[in-house]
Design a protein around this nucleic acid. Sequence first.
DNA 1: CAGAATACCTGCGGGC
DNA 2: TGCCCGCAGGTATTCT
Length: 271
Amino acid sequence: MPELPEVETTLRGIQPFIQHQVIAQLVFRRANLRWPIPTTDLQRLVGQSITAVKRRGKYLLLSTDLATIIIHLGMSGRLRILDKPAIADKHDHVDIIFDNGYLLRFTDPRRFGALLYSEADPYQHPLLKQLGVEPLSRQFCVDYLKRRLQDKRLAIKSALMDQCIVVGVGNIYATEALFIAGIHPLKSARTLALVDLKRLLKATKSILRRAIWHGGSSLKDFLNSEGKPGYFSQKLQVYARAGLPCVRCKSILASIRIGQRSTVYCPHCQH
DNA sequence: CAGAATACCTGCGGGC
DNA sequence: TGCCCGCAGGTATTCT
């Protein structure tokens, strides 16, 4: 479900409801997600007000004066706002209840997601410290990309999805960006010419911006914080279209696996 | 060391 | 109808 646009959509959806609100109660219905949930630490946040809601890569950061809650949605995680307590479903693992009656509910069938706690600078947390640049920032530029890819022999698609290089790009948007840029996903990262890097940068920024504008993609089960689907999946040009004609040249789109992830591309348009 | 494979988990759709 | 297989938006860990 969540790559950068879906996480950003989630952030924008929940922020107005939780910023400046005071945590009244935390409800944990299981002890583990991807890692143990630090329930004892998190309970210390009762009485604290949410001072900021931010995103770093695919992580969401809910800050208080005392500490930051670090949230990752994994593969199937979702956050939504409820205006009153409701019966918890099988996969509704955590509720953060605010003193205005609203609550933030974390749902995650596959439990690859994570809920962490940091009293120190969250950006120095082991999971966030190594993250690469934000793709929509000015730091994601040709000079940076050239430098980070210059001795990478792996497939450009794998490099584009490497969160240590650039954050937020997952399987869907890497696939789409490479199609838009006309670059073969298996091409060795270090062999891209400057002109390729420029097209890839432009394509990546563009696809992410457009996906955010449309409220994220909704392939199977992505629902935003209001429980509504994103509409960007209708705009996807190659992802999940293997065997169908290329929108540009009508060639049949090919499907391969790169780094254990399904990858669709046009053999005619991408080199 | 880089890069590839594996592991974590549930749900769904397709083939039989 | 039901069982088995492969696959799904991510990434830390283990391997070669």
